[in-house]
Design a protein around this nucleic acid. Structure first.
Lengths: 287, 287
DNA sequence: AGAGTTCGATGCGGACGACGCAACAGCGTT
DNA sequence: AACGCTGTTGCGTCGTCCGCATCGAACTCT
């Protein structure tokens, strides 16, 4: 945040009750996540805080194993406690827990990278994945925020996001990754409509020029799209037959997972007698 | 200073400079990890605190996505923030980051469960694993604390732990899991000495009566054992040939990982005769 | 090797933010 | 409809955290 000349010590607004020290601690943790092996002084500067505060926060977090002093006591990194808590959080989330079997099955059936992606605000976040056993170097990292306008899973999530999210994304400049990246707001809008109508998405080289991605939506009890399941790999390994197979596989597993999550049976008839694409009055469904 | 009113949740050591609110927040997170989908009142009771404190902590944590209100706003669970932080923590840890390739390679070569386990105090904790693609139901969960006196990896960690840890473990009653669980302190001591001498460990049916486990030590720069790499599966799938292969495989990958972590080349136990020397040639070649 | 310049760690008092109490508001049940 | 339970909020007081300043120590530069 930028500096506020007058620290609003007079909370005129309803002071949504948050505990400042805890908030600072979490901010510090996330700061540390982005700056591994930073020291007290560096973190204090980055956080716009004082050394003593940062030091005491780190000390507290260290006793709980959330951070860990590295080697010669000169730098800090996230610790075991954070890691373990993350694993526990994974077990608390039905989506991820129930997805395990499908991720494994897809990985086994395709031998390509498998992603489970959700939307977090204006970003896409991969919450679980399976690595391909074959040699390839695709961007692949659980937990890193990615833009919503490129890639099989992210673009699918954007297509089913509330209107205000779509507008917010379109308002900001769309970064170009390859020459096939969709950077025009108008045509991206058309692409999103097509995705909604198809109930699936596939992208070819819009994020990595040599990568494909087949994505299908995962829905929860309310029928809203809460995640995207996707198969990704290098184009060099993509045959026509494989593409057909991947389309069917990812759709099948995504709808099976949706069913396990309690989603209403099947929304779009596979014969498509009537296609009311955007006519479904599914307004903004908050996540 | 030495006022000691009987406070349930007062583990704080007097002189250490810790921020109480942050400490409470972390305690609450770990409490919530053990009691998924608990409410405010229940958590307050469990923490020995008041409703308002717990509520405000939860509110603060929720704004940061560390906890998440479930369905009808009546229960809380760990949220996305905790999960993502855990993933970041994973990237901060050399051991886990460098182990990925070896875990994948072992999983591919054996098609059994692969574990990377460390010691945390008087418990063993699995920090990463690969699931076998074959059907079997072994205990398998990242992040859950396990006893040190049973299982291939844990017992290996105990063998190389400081004496005070061994003594502390032996002092407490050793829970019996199967009829092959080692519960006598004297014979466990002998077993640990044998493990140290062999520089490896394998366990058969001491935790699960139908499970085997081959474990090898991972060392860091100082030459100390910091983790155990292990292959585990059901005895029904273990042939004589597989056992020989697993012994060599796990030892090879553990020593390769140790080398990547900067461990001194080959550690020969001082004054110990050469045990079964598995040929260290032909290391797993990966990209 | 010595001194300078960082860094991390610590004491202290004052100020402000968090805590506990108790009342309020939804919701399911009796 | 009233009750009991839940989560939520107001408010004053007190205890806790924060900032400043200092110390100790490690690395570096000449």
């Amino acid at each position: 945040m930028s500096q506020d000349p007058l620290r609003l010590a007079r909370p005129a607004v309803p002071p949504a009750y948050t505990i400042a020290a805890v908030d600072r601690a979490i901010a510090l943790l996330e700061l540390l996540a982005d700056h591994p092996h930073a020291g007290v002084t560096q973190l204090a500067k980055l956080a716009g805080s004082t050394k003593s505060q940062v030091f005491r926060l780190l000390h507290t977090l260290e006793r709980r194993r959330f951070v860990r002093k590295d080697n010669a006591q000169r730098s800090y990194a996230l610790g075991l406690g954070a890691l373990l808590l993350g694993e526990r959080a994974r077990l608390h989330t039905d989506l991820i827990r129930l997805a395990q079997g499908h991720l494994d099955a897809l990985a086994d059936a395709t031998r390509e990278n498998i992603y489970l992606t959700i939307r977090d605000g204006l970003s896409a976040v991969c919450v679980d994945m399976r690595h391909s056993p074959q040699p390839l170097r695709l961007y692949a990292e659980v937990g890193r925020a990615a833009p919503l306008h490129v890639g099989g899973g992210p673009k699918l999530l954007l297509a089913f996001a509330p209107d205000e999210v779509i507008e917010a994304v379109l308002k900001r400049p769309l970064t170009r990754f390859t020459n096939r990246t969709e950077v025009s707001a108008a045509s991206l809008r058309r692409a999103l409509a097509a995705i909604r109508q198809a109930g699936a998405n596939e992208s070819h080289g819009d994020l990595d020029s040599d990568a494909f991605s087949f994505a299908a939506p995962v829905r929860d009890l309310g029928g809203g799209v809460i995640a995207a399941l996707s198969i990704a790999g290098p184009n060099s390994r993509l045959t026509q037959a494989a593409a057909t197979r991947y389309r069917a596989l990812v759709a099948s597993h995504a709808s099976a997972l949706s069913r396990e999550l309690g989603a209403p049976p099947v929304v779009t008839p596979p014969g498509a007698p009537i296609q009311l694409a955007t006519a479904t009055r599914a307004k903004g469904r908050r996540s």
